[in-house]
Design a binder for these strands. Structure first.
Lengths: 133, 133
DNA sequence: TTACCTGCAAAACCTTTGCAAGTAC
DNA sequence: GTACTTGCAAAGGTTTTGCAGGTAA
């Protein structure tokens, strides 16, 4: 896939973006496919993937791809961090300040450092309850 | 796959561990398959995956699964961080101190926090050169 | 009008798994 | 002897892609 020179706001793209901005649940591509199909039954999964990729490249959404498991998407592009449940895979926002300044980054091993990813892991409230019973 | 009650040090497992400890290159399962096949031509890729999983669960090696791309493995289990080249996917050690204390972690959003993953991204020296020409 | 985009289905890709034979302990 | 492990090959699940017809600007 090569980058297009310009992009168009198609109905599909708009609906995907809307649905994603509407929730705080960090859905996977498949989740988003389901959400969007409720409004647009004939959309294809391929289109969902193509648009998520494009929107992420444009900076309209965020791709959360930490930890091997499948990719999650976030309509909130402001700087914040996440926590993933090791039992069920659920992803939530995690309010913490990371004092890693990007200024001090360009010092190691010859890389042109661009940024970092930080993700927490743990057991979510629901799974905590479940393991008690 | 359920955890075995005890594990045996098979030749395959030993060679995989040796090869991984020998390098600092953070290879993927496929890379390791190639490395091991040089010494043990009949080993199967399935065996490599099974052993990497098991060794990681035992804490003998580290699984680096940040950032969507395929999983890399690290024979060095001491605490340190990594940087991944956004162009070629290469993974190197990145010497930085992260002052995120695990004590302050159990405060957010009802999770039982277990840990965090931190990975840097940038352009590696080779790819920097390439993009200049 | 013309890139860009879509739906569909097939392909690609990495990883996991079932099974019968082999092996560490 | 008996779990644990292997090689092989097939299956699994997610993501990507080719193509011909559609559509935003």
């Amino acid at each position: 896939m090569t980058d297009p020179k310009s992009t168009r706001m198609t109905k599909q793209r708009q609906v995907i973006l809307n649905e994603l901005r509407k929730v705080t649940s960090h859905p996977t591509a498949d989740n988003i496919y389901d959400m969007v199909r409720a409004r647009m039954p004939h959309i294809s999964l391929g289109t969902v993937y193509r648009n998520l990729e494009l929107l992420a490249r444009q900076g309209d959404i965020q791709k959360l791809s930490i930890d091997g498991d499948r990719v999650h998407y976030d309509g909130d592009v402001s700087e914040h961090y996440h926590i993933r449940c090791v039992k069920c895979g659920r992803v939530d926002d995690y309010p913490v300040e990371a004092n890693i300044s990007t200024k001090e980054l360009n010092q190691g091993c010859g890389y042109e450092v661009a940024g970092f990813k930080l993700e927490f892991s743990g057991v979510c409230p629901k799974c905590k309850k479940k393991s008690l019973s």
